[in-house]
């Protein structure tokens, strides 16, 4: 696939010489373009609802974008290895239930157990994808179906009465500090962002992730054990999904079977908008952060516009397609 990709791209590059000037400048700096899109959306939103510019408006965008951003971190890391995780929403929901059920035995303990369960399920996905070579889309899709089935059975039995979320988590998930300026969950997001960005750039695992996604054969020849990388990456995805699930549960104040469902497609979209390619090896988490913020502002804007569900879906689809296309075009120009 990669060979084909490169050669076709080369053909195109030959037909259309790389452009100099502002287009070339911008295409090398996608974050600038994303920042401009974000700024434009904010301006439009303020024009619709001047109240948005208040401290609270910014705080809300952060508060709502944080869980999407953390789930999108999982998708970004996976997409770098040509993977995807459809099960993040159900893993997040399960983590919410686990934390709720263990809260009686101590908060820290319950959170650790919740996150471990998430990582464990992610690792199972990783075994399927890395060892048994199941297509990531199918593996995580099936995992999602299995988790929904299990949770539907467990919710009224072993998880009965655990739907209330401990006050501490409600504060972390929905509260804010510094005069209602910064939400606590944005701190969690920031921590995740630092770890993911530095991890991808500096650590050996990060380099292996890019290597596996860019050219699996070359990576294998260079001694990278692909299945080990995939196992770890999917476990990380499960862990991040669990973190997001705990935050979402805190924000909503309770858990239910469809807790994180609404976050699944935005998490993929945020990574795509941020310029991570599903062909693997290309992309960064900083782009994804912008993607999550863009989606957050867009959502708020559409709420202010009283947009119908129909309108929301169309706008969402067009934005994803438009930015992905722009990004692909820019990449072709520079590539």
């Amino acid at each position: 696939m990669t060979e084909t990709e490169t050669s076709v791209r080369d053909d195109r590059a030959g037909a259309r010489p790389a452009e100099a000037g502002w287009a070339g400048y911008l295409s090398e700096r996608p974050l600038l373009v994303l920042g401009a899109v974000l700024a434009l959306l904010v301006v439009v939103t303020v024009a619709i609802e001047p109240g948005y510019l208040s401290v609270r408006g910014v705080r809300n965008t952060l508060l709502l974008a944080a869980p999407v951003g953390i789930l999108a971190a999982a998708q970004t890391v996976l997409m770098l290895t040509r993977g995807i995780d459809i099960s993040v929403a159900m893993v997040a929901t399960l983590a919410g239930y686990v934390v709720g059920s263990q809260a009686g035995t101590g908060l820290a303990y319950s959170i650790v157990v919740g996150l471990l369960v998430g990582a464990l399920i992610g690792a199972v996905n990783g075994v399927g994808v890395g060892v048994f070579r199941v297509h990531p889309l199918i593996m995580t899709l099936a995992m999602s179906a299995i988790l929904l089935g299990l949770l539907s059975q467990w919710a009224p039995t072993i998880f009965r009465g655990v739907t209330a979320v401990p006050p501490f988590l409600r504060t972390v998930g929905g509260g804010s500090f510094a005069g209602h300026l910064i939400p606590y969950n944005a701190l969690v997001w920031a921590a995740v962002a630092v770890v993911v960005i530095l991890g991808l750039r500096r650590s050996g695992l990060g380099r292996m992730i890019y290597a596996v996604g860019d050219n699996p054969t070359a990576a294998r020849l260079a001694g990278v054990r692909e299945w080990q990388v995939l196992l770890v990456v999917y476990a990380i995805s499960g862990l991040l999904a669990a973190v997001a699930g705990v935050l979402i549960a805190g924000q909503v104040g309770s858990v239910d079977l469809r807790l994180a469902e609404e976050f699944l497609l935005p998490s993929v979209a945020a990574a795509v908008i941020g310029g991570t390619s599903l062909f693997g090896g290309v992309g960064s988490y900083s782009g994804t952060i912008f993607g999550a913020l863009i989606l957050g502002v867009l959502n708020t804007m559409l709420t202010f516009l009283n947009a119908t569900q129909a309108m929301k879906q169309v706008v969402f689809g067009v934005i994803v397609l438009g930015l992905a296309w722009a990004y692909a075009a820019a990449q072709r120009r520079t590539g």
Partner: peptide
């Protein structure tokens, strides 16, 4: 607004509107 009877969606909408 339409919450779609989804708690997460309702929470986001309420937060956006109550704030502004």
């Amino acid at each position: 607004v339409f919450t779609g009877w989804d708690p997460s969606t309702g929470a986001q909408q309420a937060l956006d509107i109550l704030s502004t």
